[in-house]
Design a protein around this nucleic acid. Sequence first.
DNA 1: TGCGGCTATTG
DNA 2: CACAATAGCCGCAG
Length: 617
Amino acid sequence: MPDQPHEFVDEVLSVIANRGVSIALAVHPEVGVGLAVAVPPPEGPSIHDPAPTADSSGHDPEHEVRSFAFAADETTSIAILRAIENAIRPRWVLWSADTAVALTRAGLRLATCWDIAAVHRLLHGGWRADPALVWATTHDLALDTLPDPARTTGPDLFSQLTAETAEGQAPPSLSDGHLDPSWVAERWHESPRNLAMWATSALRVEGAQQRDLARSQEPERYAATARAESATALLCAEMTVDGLPLDSTVATALIATTVGVRPTNEFEAAAARTERDATVLRHLPDHILAGARPDLRSPGQVKSILRSVGIEVPDTRAWRLEPLRDLHPIIPALLEWRRIERVSTTYGYAWLDEHVGADDRLRGSWSTSDGAAGRMTASAGLHNLPTEMRVAVLAESGHVFVRADLGQIEPRVLAAVSGDDSLTRATADADMYQPVAERLSVDRATAKVAVLGAMYGQTTGHGAAALRGLRANYPVAMRYLEDADRAGQVGRELRTFGGRRIRMDQLNVEGMTDQQARARSAAQGRYARNATVQGAAAELFKLWAVTVRARGREMDARIVLCLHDELLVHVRSEVSSAATQLVAECLQEAARRWAPVTGVRFLADISVLDRWGDAKD
DNA sequence: TGCGGCTATTG
DNA sequence: CACAATAGCCGCAG
């Protein structure tokens, strides 16, 4: 047992010589490092084993799992991992992206990984992907017998069993096969030895996921998606830690022009609120104001006060009130109040205080995929920052943003995943709605609405006539969408092009009227129809992003924002043209790897900016 | 206290 | 108000 970090590294590397091998990792800042790796036996494959059968881990049964443990503080742990990373660049197997966030915070940015949770979400859909569930799924255990972590009394309940496993290499599982909940909660980091066993469990799960991918409908493509998802988890960890450069002075000024100067205490804040409400309430007759003051934040009360001035509306959404502007002065006053109230509550001083650090970085947490079609998600308003606020997103001194967005990504992706030759030919045009319009003998706007309507499942309105034209001219693509729609309507399982499972388990029509059930079924159809396109677009986008991350490392290009079809890369000013070229090349590389045969053209609009808000669309 | 509904923002 | 997301507030059930 080595007691110096470099001896430990040497021992690990003496066992793992080849680059790119999978090493499972469990790490804790106060405990140390645990590693596990599958290695071939030293004498080579044995010849006397008559019929080697793949075990549940999915790894070659000839391979022996070796585990390593080292007690260390956080700094030493990071140094060890960095030495191994630099020597052989392994594919680090992680239980989840939490580990990647912790390592990134500590200054270690891994090149590649296998994110067990992300791969689980890819293969099985849904959001939950904790070790207990993933373990049970990969071991074909019944999910209804999953131990409830909340009701577990701790180690004492299973002390005999865990004492036994602590001596050997067996993963910490119960007699029924489920992961021991006390390990999931606490015990995994009680000692370096436990970390090594926890890593061993992770390695078995990774092997099982590889096995499941190998047996899937499209083994190579789905496995490629799993690797890209894992790399995306590393990118998300970095965006979570780094944040988005934001000039808080500019942001503060913007907020001030809308809601006024920052209140210095609760009293001032309340007074400003009352004053704001009064700009609307003064348009009301006295007898309404005589009772309790109406609450403008309550949609029901807004409806009643509008009724009191003779305006009857089914709801009070802005788009519905907008045409009624001239009917009564309270309408424009209310719309303006809503705009200001919105800034005040969601993108005001509280938002600034909570999410923007002293280093002028806006930080939210990023996740690799939502629970549905697989797009990335972000909190802290990173994905829905009002366009006016984007002028505050400012590159650091000596830096610029390279901003790139994919043009017409969803219809191009539809052409690729459906394999529609006619639609693929249309993608040769930089504006693919133009050739579609010519083919349908309609104007461009109509063609665009029709194509989008087909992907969203719209069946009524102006696009309806053009929809028939689409079916006649692009039958393969339209059939692809209609097949997905039908599957969704009856709750049949569906996967995106890259293999993401689209869950359809919310088919609960109990207690519904026939009409409600039909509406639900139609909604699921639209959902499924769109998820195949939106999900596949997300797969291409993520592959593009992680390619930029990998290739941009040398010039220290940092992706600071991902917005479904848009990338914002923060780079030193002197490499801006190299970075621009890189982003363009990475798109072509990603497209080639994602859909190597279809010949669909993908394009990006790329510009160099100081401020995100200077982007021209 | 938790959750559905309403509203607003984005792609 | 087609498809998706996050977020804040209100009203109501438990």
